[in-house]
Design a protein around this nucleic acid. Structure first.
Lengths: 238, 238, 238, 238
DNA sequence: AATGAATGAGTGTTCATTCAT
DNA sequence: AATGAATGAACACTCATTCAT
């Protein structure tokens, strides 16, 4: 059993080494110009070994997206438990874009660009974890009359997502020329102003059972999503 | 003189033929998978001829962006002369994204994705034509107390541009899965709600002379930009 | 260990096969007109394999020069131990040009022409093996009063080298129109007549420690040169 | 007739412009890397015009050799009339290599390299002008008992030529790393020492009528060679 | 599990040359 | 005589992927 463990450890360590080497190369030469052999050299691993762990470069890249997404779960509680839903939306945009400052900027840019061009549909399905969180936050905000309720939480969540992602992509398309966080700090309050509850808007809460979308959970996220959904459902205001 | 003309005409016709063939191929196989030879076959032109007109595929692609940009000038008047500045912002977002519906959708997607990965900084400088238009529209809106004036026109224009471009890129990242125009029709009024003039905001008009940015006009646009700037300056409300 | 050996053997065999195929092609079509694919076909190897072993055609050609140079070491002993130094100079010229008769004449011509145009300065540095040999031979000849001693061994060695190489290049420039060895047999005794010791010349032996030049040994030859230098130093007459 | 002249002048001027442009390019980028279009751009002439005057790049290059050769005729008199034949041989080597210092060094290198690799047999035929001069000088030296007469003037002339050309090629192969003229000044007296008349050598003058070779005058030189031969014959000592 | 030699289809690019204007 | 648009064969080199060891 110890042997098994040491083998498994070895396995994970090698895979980890490859991923890190890949990121180092991505930063150094850019994703498009990083060759399999570059990664192998950097990881001090043979080409054969690379193919033992990944089918190809894209496979490796996609495997990284989960990490980005999952890192986000940590803040779910804070967003959901924030009594000010409108502020939560602002926070959401910031958390979503945290990679732009937290990890290496160049690397974040590379992954953002990859997201646009890779066109992996599974990449941004409605029910990816943060969409669930967002719907919960918005619904609760509607209940508390902090957010407009003339549209369903999912519709508004789509809007928040599109604006947030858009800001990320735009920043990437400008090659990170400006400080994304600073810009978001200035801009999001203006862009999200329209989300605030106003008397003049119709007020129409949706069925609480329909707040959290259910379709098409990619297997990659199945487990984590199940947990998250349960938590969110338990926090829905009635 | 006739001789000159016939040669020049021929030249333009050939170049045009290549561009159209390229777009046909981009739609058929995608930009990344379109070979120079594909384009040449489609255009019924030799490889040498292609390289006589363009340095490479990227060169051709970039040359197309100018066309997209310049096509936008046609609507400048409508936007600037629209008495409702807030509505102009909404219209702007629509016009900016018109390619998504006007020309072939696949082609638009290809170009949008290309924009993200090309990383041509010159692609979106502040004073590209529509930025000038936008500043004009916003300033006039501020003068008319239709738009908030606690930020400079340029700051707000940046915001509008980022949101609009972001929406385009997001749509592209989803591979055009939804109807961009429909979504914009629904979402922009909400996102731009925060631009409206409100009594509670500070009201601070900027120096009219500083409305239209002047730096770094890329040579590609020099001529057209000069004309446009003149027009915009003449339309600024005092 | 056996496994290692079999792989390494295979590697050397493949590389050898490529080199031989290249030479076959050079003879058949000339260096300039030999394509990488020609070599690969002849060697029954894929293009990729060629590039696995060499960066390009030039790389392969340069790698061959070492072989030529190193083959020369075999005669070092004979030249140095020859009691008649003047005769050694004549022999040197012959040995240096032996390829012109030993291996294929066409091939030798091709390599000579390549040498002229390659402009690899490292190709003929002063301390390339035969320069060391030559200095030793000349110094010993000066000690024995067989060769003039009004110039340093290095100066005279330069002269011998230039004349010898020059004869080779000239022969190449005439496309091997005459028999190089016959010509050398006739001409070298006349050209080298001036190297003989004569009473009327000043006689000035240089410092034995300075006979063999030390600077800039190209890495390619480091090891072999070290051995050779040691040998030559041990044979210097005092 | 004036029109004709002006046309012809124009023609010669254009051709001259092309040649000069070519040389400029050769210096700037090297012969091998100079494209026809480079030359045309430099000459401010269309590609079509280039092909109007030359068949190809080689054609242009070969056309230049004549100039080099003919420039040499100027010194013929000085060499032939020099009472010291041995000194004339030394002078010959210098004059032959004068381009190395007179015109642009890089250009000279390029042409020398071209000579080796072009393999134009007509390039160095025995009876190229300077061969005739050399035979005359040597024969007269033999008559005056300044030069050894155990070999025919043509044999010795071959030797002088080979050594001289060889020195040039060697210099070129080293990419002009040393000062050719300085080296020649030092080395030629040693290398040519063996040409001196000595009592111990057999003395056998050849038939004066056979001194100057007659075969294979390339058309390119026909005219000038005829004049030169006549002059040389008139200067032969009897 | 790890290696790395071998593969070869794929593709961008070059550039001398032609010929209609 | 001069132009320069058009040609297209020619070629070097890449790099993801396989598989025997």
């Amino acid at each position: 059993m110890e042997k098994m463990t040491s083998r498994q450890e070895q396995k994970i360590r090698t895979q980890q080494k490859i991923v890190e080497a890949a990121n180092t190369c991505f930063i150094r030469k850019g994703m498009a110009y990083t060759l399999i052999t570059d990664i192998c050299e950097e990881a001090e691993v043979s080409v054969g070994t690379f193919y033992h762990y990944f089918n190809n470069k894209n496979d490796l890249i996609i495997s990284q997206f989960k990490k980005f997404d999952m890192g986000f779960l940590e803040v779910a509680h804070r967003l959901i438990d924030n009594p000010d839903a409108w502020d939560s939306l602002i926070q959401f945009a910031h958390f979503f874009s945290r990679d732009a400052s937290v990890s290496d900027k160049t690397l974040t840019l590379e992954y953002l660009k990859a997201r646009v061009s890779l066109t992996v549909e599974q990449l941004f399905p409605r029910n990816r974890p943060y969409f669930i969180i967002l719907c919960t936050v918005i619904y609760n905000g509607q209940v508390r009359r902090q957010l407009r309720a003339d549209q369903t939480p999912q519709q508004l969540a789509d809007l928040v997502m599109a604006a947030t992602r858009g800001y990320n992509f735009d920043w990437a398309s400008m090659d990170g020329a400006y400080d994304l966080h600073l810009r978001m700090q200035q801009d999001m309050p203006i862009l999200f102003e329209g989300f605030r509850y106003r008397e003049e808007y119709p007020y129409q809460l949706c069925d609480p059972a329909a707040v959290i979308p259910v379709q098409n959970v990619p297997k990659l996220y199945e487990q984590e999503t199940a947990q998250l959904r349960e938590y969110c459902e338990s926090r829905l205001l009635r």
